[in-house]
């Protein structure tokens, strides 16, 4: 066991754990989107889990640092929060905010993080980037909504882990990056109907189970076997019903016509 200090509290965790996981296990919530417990090499791409660690001369993503004895970690300084808000703002600017009509409403990781960072879902500083994306390659069981996708890569990871070979992957680059189902003909996708791991892990409702029109989150809630307990962090009370009410929602189409 290793002892480290996070936000002036001493916590004790197993060796070889990432700082982020250590914090989450000890009910210290650090916002994160692209990290999953099972990952050996977290991509560290969402830039939300930044923390200050003594000995490092700049903030560092807590998902890529392993715990060390006597480490001093600060996750709630004003500087860190500012960085996290900016990273979150950038993610929001490519996310079509229309919570009322979104199947992930109230279960959305973005809403959770917005609440945690005290950051409105309405962009003030940045212009929304409404991307025109043609979805290539139809999938018989899954629906992909590119304008909701924050490209966290969780779906690609879980698919690879569960099926050996990923049946979906990132395609293109830059602002055009999407998740693509390219390839296998529909006979190879029969297993998808049994799996839906990607739709279940999607934090924002960008991957949906087709036809039923209900999100995998709802499916999960119904099955009542949530595999990954959501961290209940500080400042986030469980069963807080006013969560959705406190988040400003935009009327449909309010983001359209923003222009370049």
């Amino acid at each position: 066991m290793i002892k480290l200090i996070v936000d002036n509290n001493e916590i004790e965790v197993e060796e070889g754990m990432t700082v982020l996981q250590a914090c989450l296990d000890n009910e210290i919530y650090i916002p994160n989107l692209c990290y999953l417990k099972e990952m050996d090499n977290p991509p560290g791409s969402c830039r939300l889990c930044l923390v200050e660690i003594d000995g490092y001369n700049q903030p560092i993503t807590s998902c890529t640092v392993k715990v060390e004895e006597g480490m001093v970690v600060r996750s709630n300084t004003e500087h860190i929060r500012k960085l996290q808000r900016t990273a979150f703002e950038l993610l929001l600017s490519v996310h079509h905010v229309d919570c009322k009509n979104c199947p992930a409403n109230r279960k959305c990781e973005l809403q959770r993080i917005a609440k945690f960072l005290h950051f409105g879902l309405k962009l003030k500083r940045l212009e929304p980037l409404d991307r025109e994306i043609k979805v290539e390659g139809d999938h018989p069981f899954l629906e992909y909504v590119p304008n909701r996708c924050v490209l966290c890569g969780r779906c690609v990871f879980v698919c690879k882990k569960k099926n050996g070979q990923a049946m979906l992957s990132f395609a293109k680059k830059g602002f055009d990056t999407v998740i693509s189902f390219f390839g296998e003909d529909n006979s190879a996708r029969v297993s998808c109907e049994e799996c839906y791991a990607c739709a279940e892990i999607c934090p924002v409702g960008a991957l949906l189970v087709k036809n039923s029109k209900r999100s995998a989150h709802q499916r999960l809630a119904k099955n009542n076997n949530s595999q990954r307990p959501r961290p209940s962090g500080r400042g986030l009370k469980k069963g807080n019903n006013s969560l959705a009410a406190s988040i400003p929602t935009l009327p449909g189409g309010a983001l359209k016509g923003g222009g370049k």
């Binding site: 990923a166 049946m167 992957s169 390219f182």
Partner: peptide, 24 residues
């Protein structure tokens, strides 16, 4: 698209991986 799938089969990687690399 069929050419990409053939390459994927040859290298024993998934076709969407090939597509991801090619479109990058």
């Amino acid at each position: 698209p069929l050419a990409l799938q053939m390459v994927a089969r040859h290298l024993k990687v998934s076709s969407c991986d090939v597509y991801g690399v090619a479109t990058f």
